[in-house]
Computed example of a mutant assay.
Amino acid sequence: MGRRRIEIAEVKNPNTKLVTFSKRRTGLFKKANELSVLCGAEVAIVMFSPGQKPYSYAHPSVDVVADKYLRRKRRSNVVGANVRENNASNEVGERLCQELSAVEVLTEEEHKKATELEMREKEQEASQFSQNKELLQSSPALQRMVKDYVDAMEVSECMLLLAKEAVIGVPNRPITKRRRRN
């Protein structure tokens, strides 16, 4: 059939969109690999899938390429742009510091909660252990009580049997009237 030209438009079907993304991502990563091997270029690709999963390819690494790109971009700006960029970066930096401190506070609160939960869990385990120990210690006493109860039941059963038959081992003879001989 060969290759055909496709219309460049967003794919509407979500399943088709994911399949297309996966195939295109693989092809794009292959091309980036070829470019880095054949030309010795430093390449970095970062993309997010329609499901918001991050994917990246880089040679030698994303951090190295991104740092190099950002350093060059900063050097190429004119002085006035540098001042604006510094002001903007200061504002961004302050905002990031505020967000970082908020995250640190939340992290500390969660750490305290985790510590408290661990302590509660240990206390609960200790109380369960002591309860189990008490049960184990009371177990022989309970066994003795049950044995005594079973023995008493056997004795009661024997007493009932004795009440029915006066003498054990002697068969009951029917009582008959004897005739007197004259």
Rank of each mutant, 00 (worst) to 15 (best):
V37K: 10
L38V: 15
C39H: 13
C39S: 15
G40N: 05
A41Y: 15
E42T: 07
V43M: 02
V43L: 01
A44L: 04
I45S: 04
I45N: 02
F48W: 05
S49R: 00
G51C: 08
H59A: 13
P60Q: 00
P60K: 01
S61K: 05
S61Q: 02
V65G: 02
L70G: 05
L70Y: 05
R71H: 08
R72D: 13
R72A: 15
K73T: 07
R74D: 11
N77G: 11
V83S: 09
R84G: 10
E85D: 14
E85I: 13
N86I: 08
N86E: 06
N86K: 15
A88I: 04
E91Y: 08
V92S: 08
V92Y: 09
R95S: 06
R95M: 02
L96S: 09
L96I: 05
L96F: 08
C97Y: 15
Q98A: 06
E99V: 02
L100Q: 11
S101E: 10
A102N: 03
A102Q: 05
A102S: 04
A102F: 06
E104G: 00
E108H: 02
E108C: 02
E110F: 11
E110Q: 04
K112E: 08
A114P: 03
T115D: 07
T115V: 13
T115A: 15
E116K: 12
E116P: 00
E116I: 02
M119Y: 03
E121V: 09
E123Q: 07
E125N: 05
A126Q: 07
S127P: 03
S130G: 04
S130N: 14
Q131V: 15
S138Q: 12
S138D: 12
S139C: 14
S139M: 13
